[in-house]
Design a protein around this nucleic acid. Structure first.
Length: 908
RNA sequence: GGGCGGUUAGCUCAGCGGUAGAGCGUCUCGUUUACACCGAGAGGGCCGGCGGUUCGAAUCCGUCACCGCCCA
């Protein structure tokens, strides 16, 4: 639980201890219901649907990135008073989960086929019950403020109802249908997969040149080049380009298919590229996507010669095996039956070589399609599968992005989206798996299909169709996991029930995800959302990059460079990890991240903690009655004005999804403004003997601004900010999460305060710089004499004398009356010459060098500017204010040069 | 082959028409009572090459090179 009032006044430890604090605060928020949306509220909703992680999963760096970004947005909007729904849940991840459980079974010496479907599914559910909570527990450690009671699972009853409703509805519209065509078949997993689940890998292989005898013309051959000799058993044609000078005339003749002895036509088709290989290609319609199209165009037979395990099967060509002396031997072909495809390849090549039908072999590198899960080459296979007509569904989705109803951030990703959507292919949605949404289709004895939400519905349809009851068998297959994911933005809200959540939270505001998932998920949610709900599923799609290791390498188990976010949280705290992620997440960029980066940014968390400790030690306490508009001290006003800027920067950055700028704005303000200047300048005002009224105001302002800092940074670093908020008693325990996002406040005379503090800071920095360059030890304070200082500066110096003494190690600061003492160090601040009498302490030669360097630098600058101003075109064409600015610059440089020169002259 | 992104300080990256920036690292100095996970100061860049547009280019256009992704 959160720190109670009792602890509020306790002295802060010198170190922030995330491991002790984070779990307690998270539990405090969660039990208080701080993450919950309120469907009955009047506030404007803000909705983000979590990309549901796989139930099999555990938190990896990619999750850490995406959920940090989302949590930052969600916490910020919540503080702005929006009714936030951040919808949690997990995905059943069909293939991935089935593989995990099958591996577990294999370790026990069991096989799912032996167990049977029902027992296997029981086992998966059991496994889900045991391990499914891992990732949600880990998300809590990251600090993700998800509305947990609303957690959904893609296989739960409600979401299954949404899947059935959608399937039936699309089927009725003809947008879901069965088709027999080539699919990408994964022979290892033995299921069809979609185009997207295929990844091409470059493999060094060979190009085999095979000699096919021309029928009726002994001794004459047509040479075909192929990368897949083993499929030749299923060849049903040889194709050549109609304009091919040598082979073109052969069109219309026939060739004898070696080994098989089948007579096949030589056809003309522009698919045959005259430049590639020999210009002639074998056509195997059942085992190659391009050949399939050729086969369709030419009405070719399409025998399959590889089965579902990618082993040779002769069932469809058995009858055609014909002995042709020197060309085909059925006995040899029969030995191939049951051989794995690559073994069969070797045997076939050897046989062709023996028959002198192998012309040559060339080394050849080509792209081999692999299943992304199974990792083995995909085999195009002729099967009947369920398809979704993505072409029709894509059109409104394309239009929605074109017209800006949904906007991608960064915008360039819209091109990626368009490119895919405009050329989208039918989506194969059936999978030969057990774990997943079973396809709601039933078959009668004659194969008639009845699609309905349940068995009763199908039975009723069958009764109408047959005129009596017939036994029906449900389709064995399940749906592609992405089918249910596509419905996530509305299925989680209770659809197809009419719920107030659907009304209120659909469409969602932002979808946050990686570019690798635009096709798999974003595009499909767009299609399904628009079709089923009549509106886009989200207004904005924020696309972030990938997390890479420190060297920019993709993280992978095989590379051994995987970083575990939980380990980083253990070592540095969730805040440090989150802040690092925010700081490194620029638009359209991958995030290079390693432990050392997190360690660096942990320094910021510690800095904030220590600044708060200082505030506490100096009696800064929240005062609800404090009115910033009534602050009188320039330091107060300057700080209040600065924090206004920080608030604007942070808010603008978050509006623009610039997490790097948001983090930088917070970092800069806390470290460079609040700590380096405000707290340092405040020290003399808080010291013993200082004016009590001034001290009181500084305490109040400090506490006020610390409170603003905590609110400003809470979205990125929720734990440390909440802990400090609670300890200081800014609000009830665990209330920062619900505190209002800061707004800039009116600061009277801000301009004046800025000018004053700015010139004091510049003077201090200048003196520090001179002392450091002259190697004056800090233990030796020096007087600071001001020559030609305007009254305004002298007044400021007077007001800040204590701070200047302390920060610039000045023994005294006063106007210079008379000559510059011998052996002084000098520097120029606007119209003032700053003199440090350090006779004996400084090296005159070094001082001369320093001043000359300074003068030369300015002279170079002045020269550049004066050249510019000497250019008539510049003066006449550049905007007036730019010209004026340059004139001012030249003037300032010239007068500074004169003062530096005077200082040099004094050195003698 | 087509497309996208990148190339800026040693490293990681901002900046995307008007004087080159930050963080980290480096070097020097420091027992200043919040913080050494600190403070102060300094050094460090033909903004990938070549053309062009412009009074003015890291920034816009063209082109080339290299790196990384995506699609065929």
């Amino acid at each position: 639980m959160c720190a109670g009032p009792r602890e509020t006044m306790m002295t802060l430890d010198s170190r922030f201890a995330p491991a002790e604090i984070e779990p307690r605060l998270y539990e405090g928020w969660e039990t208080a219901g701080s993450f919950a949306c309120d469907p009955d509220s009047n506030a404007q909703p803000f909705t983000i649907m979590i990309p549901p992680p796989n139930v099999t999963g555990s938190l990896h760096m990619g999750h850490a990135l995406t959920f940090t970004v989302q949590d930052t947005l969600v916490r910020w909007r919540r503080m702005q008073g929006r009714d936030v729904l951040w919808q949690p849940g997990t995905d059943h991840a069909g293939i991935a989960t089935q593989m995990v459980v099958e591996r577990l079974l294999a370790a026990e010496g069991k096989d799912r086929r032996e167990m049977g479907r029902e027992a296997f599914l029981d086992r998966v559910w059991q496994w889900k019950a045991e391990s499914g909570g891992t990732i949600t527990r880990q998300l809590r450690r990251l600090g993700a403020s998800l509305d947990w009671p609303r957690e959904r699972f893609t296989m739960d009853d409600g979401l299954s109802a949404a899947v059935k409703e959608t399937f039936v509805s699309l089927y009725k519209e003809g947008l879901i249908y069965r088709d027999r065509r080539l699919v990408n078949w994964d022979p290892k997993l033995q299921t069809a997969i979609s185009d997207l689940e295929v990844e091409n890998r470059e493999i060094k292989g060979s190009l085999w040149y095979l000699r096919y005898p021309i029928e009726g013309e002994p001794g004459r051959f047509i040479i075909v080049a192929t990368t897949r000799p083993e499929t030749m058993l299923g060849d049903t044609a040889v194709a050549v380009h109609p304009d091919h000078p040598v082979y073109g005339p052969l069109i219309g003749k026939r060739a004898i298919l070696p080994l098989v002895g089948r007579s096949i036509p030589i056809i003309g088709d522009t698919y045959a590229d005259p430049e590639k290989g020999t210009g002639a290609v074998k056509i195997t319609p059942a085992h190659d996507f391009n050949d399939f199209e050729v086969g369709r165009r030419h009405n070719l037979p399409m025998p399959s010669v590889l089965d579902r395990q990618a082993m040779v099967t002769l069932a469809e060509i058995e009858d055609e095996l014909t002995a042709v002396p020197g060309v085909a031997d059925p006995a040899f072909v029969r030995t191939l039956a049951g051989q794995a495809r690559f073994a069969a390849r070797a045997a076939i090549v050897a046989e062709l070589e023996r028959l002198e039908l192998l012309d040559k072999i060339e080394p050849h590198t080509n792209q081999i399609p692999h299943g992304d899960r199974g990792g083995v080459p995909v085999e195009p296979l002729l099967t009947t599968q369920w398809y979704c007509n993505a072409g029709v569904l894509a059109k409104p989705a394309i239009e929605a992005v074109e017209t800006g109803r949904t906007v991608f951030v960064p915008k360039q990703w819209e091109n990626t989206f368009f490119a895919w959507m405009r050329d989208i292919q039918p989506w194969c949605i059936s999978r030969q798996l057990w774990w997943g949404h079973r396809i709601p289709a039933w078959y009668g004895p004659d194969g008639t299909v009845f699609v309905a939400k349940d068995a009763e519905g199908a039975a009723a349809q069958a009764r109408d169709h047959y005129g009596h009851d017939e036994p029906l068998v449900q389709d064995e297959d399940v749906l592609d996991t992405w089918f249910s994911s596509a419905l996530w933005p509305f299925s989680t809200l209770g659809w197809p029930e009419k719920t107030k959540e659907v009304d209120r939270y659909y469409p969602s505001d932002v979808l946050v995800t990686g570019f690798d998932i635009i096709f798999f998920w974003v595009a499909r949610m767009m299609m399904m959302g628009l079709h089923m709900m009549g509106d886009v599923p989200f207004r904005t799609v924020y696309i972030h990059g990938l997390v890479r290791d420190e060297r920019g390498q993709k993280m992978s188990k095989s590379r051994g460079n995987v970083i575990d976010p939980l380990e980083l949280i253990d070592n540095y705290g969730a805040d440090a990890l989150r802040f690092t992620i925010c700081a490194l997440t620029g638009p359209g960029r991958d995030v290079k991240l390693g432990a050392s980066r997190v360690q660096d940014y942990r320094g910021f968390i510690t800095k904030l903690w220590n600044a708060a400790r200082f505030c506490e030690m100096n009696g800064m306490r929240p005062d609800p009655a404090f009115d910033p508009a009534r602050a009188t001290l320039p330091l107060s006003r300057w700080l209040l004005d600065s924090v206004n800027t920080a608030i604007r920067e942070a808010t603008d950055a978050l509006e623009a999804y610039r997490f790097d700028e948001y983090a930088a704005a917070g970092y800069r303000f806390v470290w460079n403004t609040f700590c380096d200047w405000f707290l340092e300048l405040a020290k003399p005002l808080l010291a013993e003997g200082a004016d009590p009224a001034d001290a009181a105001e500084i305490r109040a302002v400090g506490a006020h601004v610390l409170g603003l800092i905590l609110r400003l940074l809470h979205p990125a670093i929720p734990f440390v900010t909440e802990e400090l908020w609670d300890r200081f008693g800014y609000g009830e325990p665990c209330s920062l999460i619900g505190a209002a996002w800061p707004e800039p406040a009116v600061v009277p005379d801000a301009e004046q305060a800025r000018a004053e503090l700015d010139s004091v800071a510049r003077l201090i920095t200048l003196v520090r710089s001179v002392r450091s360059e002259m190697n004056v030890p800090p233990s030796k304070p020096s007087p600071v004499l001001l020559q030609g200082a305007p009254a305004e500066l002298l007044g400021r110096v007077d007001r800040w004398i204590d701070a200047i003494r302390r920060l610039a190690r000045a023994s005294d600061v006063r106007p210079l009356a008379g000559e510059v003492p011998k052996g002084s160090a000098q520097a120029v601040l606007d119209e003032t010459t700053v003199v440090l009498p350090l006779e004996g302490l400084i090296d005159i030669a070094a001082e001369r060098a320093r001043l000359s360097k300074e003068r030369d630098k300015l002279a170079a600058d002045a020269k550049k500017v004066s050249q510019k101003l000497g250019n008539a075109d510049f003066v006449s064409r550049a905007p007036e204010e730019v010209v004026a600015e340059n004139r001012d610059r030249l003037e300032a440089a010239q007068s500074e040069i004169a003062r530096l020169q005077a200082a040099l002259d004094r050195l003698g």
